[in-house]
Design a protein around this nucleic acid. Structure first.
Lengths: 133, 133
DNA sequence: TGGTTATGTAACTAATTAGTTAAATAAACT
DNA sequence: AGTTTATTTAACTAATTAGTTACATAACCA
């Protein structure tokens, strides 16, 4: 498991490391600041940072006694590229869900035409969830 | 590490499991068929399948003595959604690379105007690599 | 020079992972 | 009923991971 994409996914599989990346998305910062939100020793955080560094997700500079960490998004781009090849599959299932919901809607209308308009398409948007993740 | 996205990324961190998903993208198939390309015992493959199943990336049916595996892309959609929040970062660095390459081009033109046209923008596309990953 | 602050390394532990072989289950075939 | 085929479970091992505490390094500050 020394290929680039494996070490990227492995690095992303830990919530602490994802939180660190989220913090770094707000800007470069020191190890101590990064460690603050976690109930965990500094060496533990240091180890997480090394994992992120090995995966190429961060770089570390030097500024006096601080080692500011900086997000490097290139491996994330690779990972997104890998996932993108499967996009058709989740979009396909949404298409089927759309059909299903539309059929439900049609059947409901046929049974009793009193259902207020717009309700179904609202549900559809929520289930899709493309905008609010 | 029992949250959905962590177990998804962890499942994707192994090349064997990614290869299994790639195979399943071509269609539902049996455990034995899935195991064929790998120099690895059946129980090992079986364990990989359990990891994928736990992550919700596959489901297993029953058809006589076969247990056909089927790709479920929903967790991939979640993972892609998580990554997408970082899209601006890799696009941003590309923007900077664009600027850099454009500056190189401009400087090269100023030094000796004999550089054939179109070469630089070709390089730019290759470095972007949005189409050929 | 000596103290403080920021960070990394060493050595250890417990839990998890990825593999193995051998045995169990379950359905089909004769 | 007995055999073959497909798959899973059990029991084990070696390697890796995520954490700990104690110590080391390195730069600044008085």
């Amino acid at each position: 498991m020394n290929d680039s994409i494996s070490s990227t996914f492995a690095a992303l599989a830990d919530p602490t490391r994802r939180a660190i990346l989220a913090r770094l998305a707000l800007g470069e910062t020191s190890v101590t600041k990064l460690a603050e939100p976690f109930e965990m020793s500094m060496p533990a955080v240091s180890k997480h940072l090394r994992v992120l560094e090995r995966a190429g997700l961060i770089t570390r500079g030097r500024e006096a006694q601080w080692r500011p960490c900086k997000l490097k998004a290139e491996p994330l781009r690779e990972a997104a590229g890998w996932l993108d090849e499967y996009r058709q599959f989740w979009e396909q299932s949404f298409d089927r869900l759309d059909e299903y919901l539309q059929r439900l809607q049609t059947e409901a209308k046929q049974k009793h035409a009193s259902e207020p308009k717009g309700t179904q398409s609202n549900n559809k948007e929520k289930v899709h969830g493309r905008d609010n993740q």
